[in-house]
Design a protein around this nucleic acid. Structure first.
Lengths: 127, 127
DNA sequence: TCCCTTACTCTCTTTCAGTAACCGTAACGA
DNA sequence: TCGTTACGGTTACTGAAAGAGAGTAAGGGA
């Protein structure tokens, strides 16, 4: 474990790119969907409402490269491809699910703050 | 708590936008920086290596609107502005720090997987 | 013959992030 | 007096990324 060398606060540190990837909007949802077990391309697309085929393909490719998911293609017609979380991917589930949970739990509080902010005239706050 | 109504997997659910925001690359780092206490614009910029003034301003504005940070401007010359996490913002620290920690801890594993993936010819894996 | 299925892939348009220049005002140094 | 620095921005421009939508391969069924 050489974890001490990485610092996401530094511009060119690889851990910054990794943080970008795991915080990515589609990554969070795709990993969440795959948490339920092996799934096909179309099944993931159905769960992650609103994702385009392009982004799903692209994100799955990245997740595969990073070792978060495995891709298994059966050479049949029509195509049959299965995606599954690896151990590494499953270790990400926890932190991501917490993020998701936080968002759901604090949604109301944030909405309220937004409404309050938008009421007062912009830039009127002075200390 | 009406948390049951929100579902980030649904395209137009506000919680999806919130999840996007809190997973945002700069948000993660700015909240992390502010975790150490009240800070000025320039201090945050120095910690979050590589962020442009534009993105720092823009992200701080959003964080303020969402109720994660407070902005206090002292009408002096040159300008003096302080940013601080709210209670809501502090409640985000935990999940975000976990993400950060995960990235640092698994950086080596991911690098290894990437290298392995890039070695074999693309699209040669079949089930 | 025609269409259906699935997992892409390509093209086009729009949106977004980053870069660099500029701003105002006061204090300071030469 | 002139030029510079300080600080927290704003603005215009540009290249990259995301989204929308149509097209593709190949076999099986009506």
């Amino acid at each position: 474990m050489t974890a001490e060398d990485w610092d996401p606060f530094q511009r060119d540190c690889p851990s910054r790119r990794l943080l970008d990837r795991i915080g990515d909007r589609w990554t969070v949802l795709i990993v969440g969907a795959l948490g339920q077990g092996t799934q096909r391309f179309g099944e993931i697309a159905a769960q992650v409402n609103g994702i385009s085929q392009k982004m799903l393909t692209q994100t799955l490719r990245s997740l595969e490269r990073d070792g978060f998911v495995t891709r298994t293609a059966y050479p049949v017609v029509p195509p049959h491809v299965e995606y599954e979380l690896t151990d590494l991917g499953r270790s990400l589930e926890g932190p991501l699910r917490e993020l998701e949970r936080w968002a759901v739990e604090h949604m109301d509080a944030v909405s309220a703050r937004q409404a309050a902010y938008d009421e007062v005239a912009p830039r009127s706050r002075v200390g």
